[in-house]
Write a protein that binds this DNA or RNA. Structure first.
Lengths: 147, 147
DNA sequence: CTCACTGCAAAGGTTTTGCAGTGGG
DNA sequence: CCCACTGCAAAACCTTTGCAGTGAG
C-alpha cells in the first residue's frame, strides 16, 4: 500500500499531534505493512530505514496514536498486542494455519446485524459496536487441497 | 456456580490428563469464578484455599487445559490473557465502563449468521466459527448473574 | 526559544523454563 | 514404583517509566 508522507503529516496535525519523524515513520509503517503488526514487527520494519528509533518511542507513539484515534488495537489471544491502521468499521478473519489476521468488509452483513439488534437489543447492555471474529483458514492458491 | 469436584476429575481423565489436586483446583476455580479471569486472578482465588500452588504451575496448567480443550482463551486488547471455562459456543459483551466481559447466547442470531454465510461464504476463507464481540456498556443497576 | 518529544536504559508486569523432588495411577 | 507433574526461582518476554538532551513549531 502506497502511503504519502504528506498525508501522514496532515493526519497527525489534524488530531493535534506534532509531526515528528518518528511518528510519521511509525504510522506510515503500519499503513504500509497493512498486516496488523506487533510493536516488534513495526520496530523491525522501521529499523531498516531508521535504525535510531528507540523501543520505548515505538510503544509510546503507538499509545499516543491509539489515544488520538489514528490507530486501533486488535484483540488477540496471544501474548503481544497488534495494531490496525484501518479506521473504518470492519471485521477480522483469523487464519489458524498461517496465523494471519485479514480484514473483512460486508455492508450487507452490517445491515443485517443492525436490523437484528435494533429490534431486539441485548438485556442490560447498550451496544455501541459489533465486531465479528471469523475463525478458520485461508483457502487461496496453494492451500486449496483439504487436510 | 456450584461445581462438583468429581465432575472436574472426570473431565480431566476424559481428555487423558492426570487429575492432580492443582489441576482440579484451577479448573474448578475458573468455572466457579465464571468471570473470564486472568492467571493472576485465578492464582489469588486459589491461594485462599491452597497457598502452596506455584505461579509457574498455574501457567503451565492453563496451557495444558487449553491444549486439551477444557478451557478457551479469551481475546483481549489489554496486556494479560483471560480464560473461559464455558465451552459451548457463545459471544462476548465487552463493557467499556466496568471492564467486564460477559457471555451472550443467542440461537436466533447464530441461525441468522449460519444462513447468511452458508449462502454467501467468504472468498478464499473457510469459516469454522464466528464469534461476535459487542462493545458498549452494561445498563443494569445490579446484576442477577446466573448462566 | 521552548516544551513536547525522543533515546537510552532500567524497572515493571506477565509468562516461560530448568531442575530437583513428589505423588497420582 | 515410575514418570508426569509440581514447587521454586531465575530467565525471557513485552511494555512502561525516568531523565537528560533535542528539534518541531
Amino acid at each position: 500500500m502506497k502511503v504519502d508522507t504528506n498525508d501522514i503529516i496532515q493526519e497527525l496535525r489534524r488530531v493535534g499531534l506534532r509531526a515528528t519523524p518518528q511518528r510519521c515513520t511509525i504510522l506510515q509503517a503500519i499503513k504500509q505493512l497493512n498486516n496488523h503488526p506487533t510493536a516488534d514487527e513495526i520496530l523491525e520494519y522501521i529499523h531498516k530505514k531508521q535504525p535510531n528509533v528507540a523501543v520505548g518511542t515505538v510503544y509510546n507513539t503507538l499509545d499516543t496514536l491509539v489515544s488520538s484515534g489514528l490507530l486501533k488495537r486488535v484483540k488477540t489471544d496471544s501474548g503481544s498486542m497488534r495494531y490496525d491502521g484501518i479506521l473504518h468499521h470492519h471485521h477480522h478473519l483469523y487464519c489458524s494455519r498461517c496465523g494471519k489476521i485479514m480484514d473483512y468488509n460486508d455492508a450487507d452483513l452490517d445491515e443485517l446485524l443492525n436490523d437484528f439488534f435494533s429490534k431486539k437489543g441485548i438485556q442490560n447492555f447498550s451496544i455501541q459496536g459489533i465486531r465479528l471474529d471469523f475463525h478458520g483458514h485461508c483457502t487461496s492458491k496453494q492451500q486449496t487441497e483439504k487436510s
